Amino acid sequence: MTITWDGPQGKILPVLTAPDTVLSTVGDEVDPADPAVVQLAADLVATMRVSPGCVGLAAPQVGVGAQLFAVDVTGHPKAATTHGAFVLCNAKIIEASRWKAGREGCMSVPDLTGDVKRAGRVVVAATLPGSGEEVTVTTDAFEARALQHEIDHCAGKLFLDRVAGAHAIYQRKVYL
C-alpha cells in the first residue's frame, strides 16, 4: 500500500499567521471523496513544496477549518522513516510512545521556535483524499513529530500551546 500523493496539480495558497482565529478553531471532519477536499489536498501539497523548509501544512493554515493536512519530510536531516509526500484526512493518533522534547517551528508562527515534547513513535489512522481508503501510518522520529504537529493544527492548536513555558520559546534565527 502506498500513501504517496498522486492527485491533481494544486495552486499555491497564502499561509495564515497567528493570531488568525482559524488557527485556534477545531477543524471539521471532511469527506475524502469530495472533489473540493481533493483539490484542497492538492493545494496543500503545492503550497508546501514552494515553501522553503516546510515539511507539513494543514488546512487551517490556509484558512480552511478542516481536518486535512500534507506532510513530506523527505531529505530532512532529522528524518529516519519517510513515506514521501502524502495527505491525510481526519487523522487520529491511535498509539504514541518514546516521548522526548524537540525544537519546532511553524509557517504560521514565523518569528518563533519552541521546545515541544512529542512522541518519537506514532501510529496514525486516517483516510486518503480521493479514494477514501482507510490507512494506518506507523512512523518515528521527525516524521512522527511532523504528523503530531499537523494533527494539532487540525485540532486548533499551535506548537506554542504545547511548550513547557516561556523559557522554551526562542526567537527564530535568520540566516543571510
Score class of each variant (00 low, 15 high):
37 V>S: 03
52 P>C: 12
72 D>E: 08
72 D>C: 07
45 V>K: 04
38 V>I: 05
36 A>W: 01
62 V>M: 10
53 G>V: 04
50 V>D: 10
65 G>Y: 03
68 L>M: 08
38 V>Y: 03
40 L>P: 04
64 V>T: 05
37 V>L: 02
46 A>D: 02
51 S>I: 00
56 G>H: 07
70 A>E: 03
41 A>W: 00
45 V>W: 03
56 G>V: 06
66 A>E: 13
79 A>S: 14
83 H>A: 10
55 V>E: 07
38 V>H: 04
59 A>D: 09
33 A>I: 11
71 V>H: 03
48 M>N: 13
64 V>W: 11
41 A>E: 08
42 A>Q: 09
75 G>D: 04
65 G>T: 14
82 T>D: 14
36 A>H: 13
81 T>W: 02
44 L>R: 02
33 A>P: 00
64 V>M: 08
32 P>D: 09
36 A>S: 15
39 Q>L: 11
32 P>T: 07
73 V>K: 12
61 Q>N: 04
54 C>A: 10
51 S>E: 14
55 V>I: 15
66 A>Q: 14
75 G>W: 13
42 A>F: 08
51 S>G: 00
33 A>L: 15
83 H>W: 13
66 A>F: 13
50 V>Y: 06
46 A>L: 04
51 S>Y: 00
61 Q>H: 01
38 V>L: 12
72 D>P: 03
43 D>V: 13
64 V>L: 00
64 V>K: 15
47 T>C: 06
45 V>C: 12
53 G>M: 01
68 L>R: 03
59 A>K: 11
74 T>P: 06
59 A>S: 05
83 H>R: 08
51 S>K: 07
73 V>A: 12
64 V>N: 07
64 V>A: 05
62 V>H: 03
39 Q>I: 06
68 L>T: 06
80 A>W: 12
72 D>L: 06
73 V>W: 02
66 A>P: 04
72 D>R: 02
67 Q>Y: 01
64 V>G: 00
41 A>S: 05
32 P>F: 06
71 V>Q: 04
41 A>F: 05
65 G>Q: 05
70 A>S: 10
46 A>Q: 11
36 A>V: 14
36 A>D: 15
